[in-house]
Amino acid sequence: MSDITADLELDVTDRVCPHTFVKTKVYLDELDEGQILSVRLNDGEPVQNVPRSLKDEGHQILRLDDNNDGTFTLYVKKVGD
Rank of each mutant, 00 (worst) to 15 (best):
S2F: 02
T5K: 05
L8I: 07
L10R: 11
V12I: 09
D14C: 09
V16P: 06
V16D: 13
C17D: 12
T20Q: 11
T20G: 12
V22E: 14
V22S: 12
T24Y: 10
K25M: 14
Y27S: 15
Y27W: 14
L28A: 14
L28H: 15
D29E: 15
D29G: 15
E30C: 14
D32T: 14
Q35W: 08
I36S: 09
I36H: 09
S38H: 09
V39F: 08
V39W: 07
R40P: 08
R40T: 14
R40H: 09
L41F: 12
L41I: 09
N42W: 02
D43T: 04
E45I: 04
E45G: 02
V47I: 09
V47H: 04
Q48N: 07
N49Y: 01
V50L: 04
V50F: 03
R52M: 08
R52Q: 10
S53W: 05
D56H: 01
E57F: 00
G58T: 00
G58P: 01
G58K: 00
H59R: 04
Q60G: 03
L62E: 09
R63Y: 10
L64T: 14
D65N: 07
D65W: 03
D66Y: 01
D66C: 02
N68S: 06
D69W: 02
D69K: 01
T71V: 03
Y75V: 09
V79C: 04
